[in-house]
């Protein structure tokens, strides 16, 4: 059990690092996906520990994968819309509201 949790913690930290340091919208989306998968790993691991026959953790992981699909679709559509407007996917250049 513990090795799985440790792995999940490391993966989550890698995702956090990516979101904080990368300025490209697509790479940030990649980092968010890594974080979501680290969370899924925990859900699946605990599913076996707690009431295994109810499958609560695994059902949550599957629902989470579904949500991730929605998130990727909408996020990528946003990125395409932004690219059409600004010709870049670098979030630091999106500063129209700057005075």
């Amino acid at each position: 059990m513990t090795p799985v949790l440790v792995l999940s913690g490391i993966l989550f930290a890698i995702g956090v690092f990516g979101v904080l340091t990368r300025r490209n919208a697509i790479t940030m989306l990649v980092s968010v996906e890594i974080m979501m998968n680290a969370a899924n790993l925990n859900l699946v691991a605990f599913s076996r520990l707690h009431e295994p026959k109810l499958m609560t953790g695994q059902t949550f992981a599957i629902l989470g994968i579904g949500i991730a699909a929605c998130e990727a679709a909408v996020g990528l559509a946003l990125i395409l819309a932004i690219y059409r407007r600004f010709s870049t996917t670098d979030v630091d250049h999106l500063d129209l509201l700057k005075g």
Binding site: T2, L5, V6, S8, G9, I10, F12, A13, I14, V16, F17, L20, T21
Partner: peptide, 17 residues
């Protein structure tokens, strides 16, 4: 970024250990 990531990761790993 690396400071925050080390903090988050260290906390999670420490807690699970």
């Amino acid at each position: 970024g690396s400071i925050v990531a080390y903090a988050v990761g260290g906390m999670l790993v420490w807690a699970s250990l």
